[in-house]
Design a protein around this nucleic acid. Sequence first.
DNA 1: CTGAAATAGTTAATGTATTAACTATATACA
DNA 2: TGTATATAGTTAATACATTAACTATTTCAG
Lengths: 156, 156
Amino acid sequence: MEEFDQSLPMILNRALDSVLPPYREIFLRYELTEPQWRILRVVWTGEKIKSVDLASRTLLAPASIVGIIDRLEKKGLVSRVRSTSDRRAVYITATAESRKLQEEVSPQIAAIQKRMKSLVSEDDWDHMEQTLVKISYLLNNDLPADMPEATAENRQ
Amino acid sequence: MEEFDQSLPMILNRALDSVLPPYREIFLRYELTEPQWRILRVVWTGEKIKSVDLASRTLLAPASIVGIIDRLEKKGLVSRVRSTSDRRAVYITATAESRKLQEEVSPQIAAIQKRMKSLVSEDDWDHMEQTLVKISYLLNNDLPADMPEATAENRQ
DNA sequence: CTGAAATAGTTAATGTATTAACTATATACA
DNA sequence: TGTATATAGTTAATACATTAACTATTTCAG
């Protein structure tokens, strides 16, 4: 059992279980969800963004994005605009109303981020982040099945 | 935007997105899901385990566990047994059939765990894990809202 | 130019996740 | 001894996640 409790998925899930509640507290007040927030964060950054780009930047599956956008649209927070140059593409834009929401909620989220970072030293934070990024990178590239060079390099 | 991409939830989610696919590949072959696997891992360890204990050990919400057990029961992998001493409690036990599944799948999962750990040095791994555990601990205890000592100690 | 293959978005089916409410039983205390 | 309260499990409602399939375009090779 121990080896399962120490597995990377469980370690990461435990961390997420501790990290998300402060965010949820805020989202509940504004009747938002975490995935909805992820979408909004990207949409707020600028101009028209294609659904397909939202997927990669929010880590949400295209099939999930459809429903999330549906709900955000119903709330009047985003709009869908079919592209004329590539009629397959749909652009998502933020509404004026969603901008007001941004003004109100963003500072609260920023405060949480700041608080999280202050929990450990900057060194610890960076080191943790680098290790996680390294693992992700190696899993996504070198090793479809057995990642030969990676194991050789990192043998302790 | 950058500060959101660097937020702890996104960092953790990116890591999970890279870590889970190898597991899913196996689960697909055996028509299991990751939450179902989490339950089975605990049930396999031993004797009769109460639903409420499954929740804490698997990080799954009690409300979710109901449905997961329903499906595992339908597949003949676990059984529910109402406790006689405390008639509120339900014990979950593994069936003989699920033991056969365990024999077959466990080694494959173990191989993945091993592969994951080999991606980075033991030092990096331990350090990352400790930092995540520390963050979880501080979030769950010291700070219902403002965690005074923690900030003071870790100011860079 | 045309048909195969790729791309963007969507739908459908099934399985969680989250919150709230509700039942049944157990425990604690006035 | 009741009675408030806590606990174990469940249900219901809504929102996502995942996989597969399907439509509408677009791209690209022959």
